[in-house]
Amino acid sequence: MRSVNSLRLKDLGEREIIRKLLELIPEPKLTRSNRIDDAVLLKDFDLVVSCDAVCDITDKLPGMKWADLGWKLGVMCVSDVASKGACPLGTLISLNAPSELEMEVVEEFYEGLVEASREYGFEIWGGDLGEAPRFLASLFMLGKVKRRFISRRGAREGDLVLVTGKFGLTGAAYHLLLRGGQAPSEHVRNTIVQAAYRPRARLREGVILSEIDGVSSSIDSSDGLAESLYQLCDVNQIGIVLERVPIAQEAIEYAEYNGIEPLELALYGGEEYEIVFTVRRSSLDEVLDRLLSIGCRAEVIGTVIKERGLFLKVEDQVQPIERRGWEHYSRSRNRNKYLGANLCTW
């Protein structure tokens, strides 16, 4: 019988909920990877599995089309698979929706998912349909490791920390769409909104990274750059000192126009599907050259250190970076102080 003083999910937060559930679940025998990784590697098959979900009330931004939401769900899973050095093969989808929802909405959502499947080369194998009070779609994805699986675990002191792109666009879009911010130009508005509505996964980049032995760990940045770096610190029991944070020019222009610190948007915006990874110093040139060959200008942003924590070097001072980012069931659902909760209706 449950106690009247039983903790609610909102009292715990996502990370603590996961920790408690893992204590209940027997250690799997068919997997070779960390159970809190982006995707799980199945022994002897070189297959990875991942899953993710979207709900209209938390994921459908104002002005966002249902096709955009379907596209985004596909990208979310592809990004997890790609950050492990794998290519997506196919998916199963579980869709739950109210009986009063128009069929056109469901069709449009599937059209977006099909677009993503064509873009990233995965099949849609089937799934399940059920009735629920809100629109909720969950995607299970199976992928194939191209050369080797890149775990979150593997970084060590002295490794370099790199990212596949710049940050801040989605954070700016959330501020614009949810907090009534103003864009300084039509170009800036279109760029940041497109980044939120139609994010891109770094699939080709992930495959290349899997081919380079000096890449020691990897994670995607969907929970926010700061939170993703903290997760690498946790699993590897290391620290990271950032020397720079690459911020998209449009995010800088938007932040300055609205009196926002650009670094806040870059560190805590989230929903940006770049790959954050660590590299042995001896492999840096190979990594940069290989990624540049497909048009990706990866950037070194910091160094792995022995002392636990995440820090930012500003001139000669090293300052701790606060741990904030997206966490389901958190008491404060804000990614940063400039962004509100995403509560959208049909």
Rank of each mutant, 00 (worst) to 15 (best):
Met1Asp: 11
Leu12Val: 11
Ile17Pro: 01
Glu23Trp: 12
Leu24Lys: 13
Ile25Ala: 02
Pro26Lys: 13
Thr31Ala: 07
Ala39His: 09
Leu42Asn: 09
Leu42Val: 12
Asp44Gln: 05
Leu47Phe: 15
Asp52Pro: 03
Thr58Leu: 08
Gly63Thr: 05
Val75His: 00
Ser83Ile: 00
Ala86Asp: 09
Pro88Met: 00
Gly90Tyr: 11
Asn96Thr: 10
Val106Glu: 03
Glu108Asp: 10
Tyr110Met: 13
Val114Phe: 04
Val114Arg: 11
Glu115Met: 05
Glu115Tyr: 12
Glu119Pro: 04
Tyr120Gly: 11
Phe122Tyr: 08
Gly127Glu: 09
Gly130Lys: 08
Phe135Pro: 01
Ser138Arg: 14
Phe149Val: 00
Gly158Cys: 06
Val161Lys: 03
Ala172Arg: 05
Leu177Pro: 02
Ile192Thr: 04
Ala195Thr: 00
Ala196Phe: 14
Arg198Lys: 15
Val207Leu: 02
Ile208Gly: 06
Asp213Gln: 04
Ser216Arg: 14
Ser217Thr: 07
Ser217Glu: 10
Gly224Lys: 13
Ala226Tyr: 05
Leu229Cys: 09
Gln231Pro: 03
Gln237Trp: 04
Ile238Glu: 10
Glu243Asp: 12
Val245Phe: 12
Pro246Ile: 04
Glu253Gly: 01
Tyr257Phe: 14
Pro262Ile: 13
Leu265Trp: 12
Gly270Cys: 07
Glu272Cys: 08
Val276Ser: 04
Arg280Ile: 05
Ser283Phe: 13
Ser283Gly: 11
Leu284Arg: 15
Cys296His: 08
Arg297Cys: 10
Val300Tyr: 05
Gly309Asp: 01
Phe311Gly: 09
Leu312Thr: 07
Val314Glu: 15
Val314Phe: 14
Arg323Ile: 03
Arg324Gln: 13
Arg333Asn: 02
Arg333Pro: 13
Arg333Gly: 07
Leu343Thr: 12
